[in-house]
Design a protein around this nucleic acid. Sequence first.
DNA 1: ATGGCTGAAGCATTCAGA
Length: 263
Amino acid sequence: MRIASWNVNSIKAHLGAVTSWLKEREPDVVCLQELKCVDEAFPRTEIEDLGYNVAVHGQKTYNGVAILSKNPIDEAKPRLPGDEDDAHARYIEATISTTDGAVRVASIYLPNGNPIGTDKFKYKLAWMDRLAAHARELLAQEEPLVLAGDFNVIPTPLDAEFPDKWTDDALFQPESRAKLRELVSLGFTDALRAVHDGKGLYTFWDYQAGAFQKNNGIRIDHLLLSPKAADRLQSVGIDKKVRAAEKPSDHVPIFADLRFATR
DNA sequence: ATGGCTGAAGCATTCAGA
């Protein structure tokens, strides 16, 4: 089973890139972030025509997350528990059934948190606390679980081409990194780092100043695997080349192949 | 030292992103 995550930076603006990539990469499950549209405006038909079931938690202009799955989506739940008053559409979770058992998947768009020293940064840290609390509950169920999304945290200096440029940024604050470590330490495996060492593996390049041409990137899109998902991990990839296309999203897809007898 | 670009909303310019 191939599970992918991609911050598409507006599903309407980049639908062509998404459908081309779906056809080429053939993921079984896809977690999308930054849809920037309400549920009714999501291009459901275009995605369903490629063989996917769709669960959307949208929002006008900002945020918005979705889960696409070739296997049936049994249950989809928007929002983290306790976030009923949060207007931001940043989380949707679904259970996907396969002939080889169920897997639970969450599509996560963690707050950016810039600039530091503001309520936006406090909101980011509080959101991370709520995510960790929920993740702890999910882990207790001891099922295959994948937390997939744009976590807006650079885990370590290895995950930025120029880490010194990010010292004043919310994505690289010690508090942000500590909270990501606390989440992972509940029992998750960072899928990419389980398979690949070293520098130069990025999922985001700014649109400005030729960042992609300079490979001035950061790794902020992550796939966190519960123990029963990590046991099945075969390989992980980053589709860097989609960033070089015309009018790309500023993020690229990351995907993991798990040993699941699907379809 | 700073900003650079992109998308949405909406029609000039602001907000947000990271």
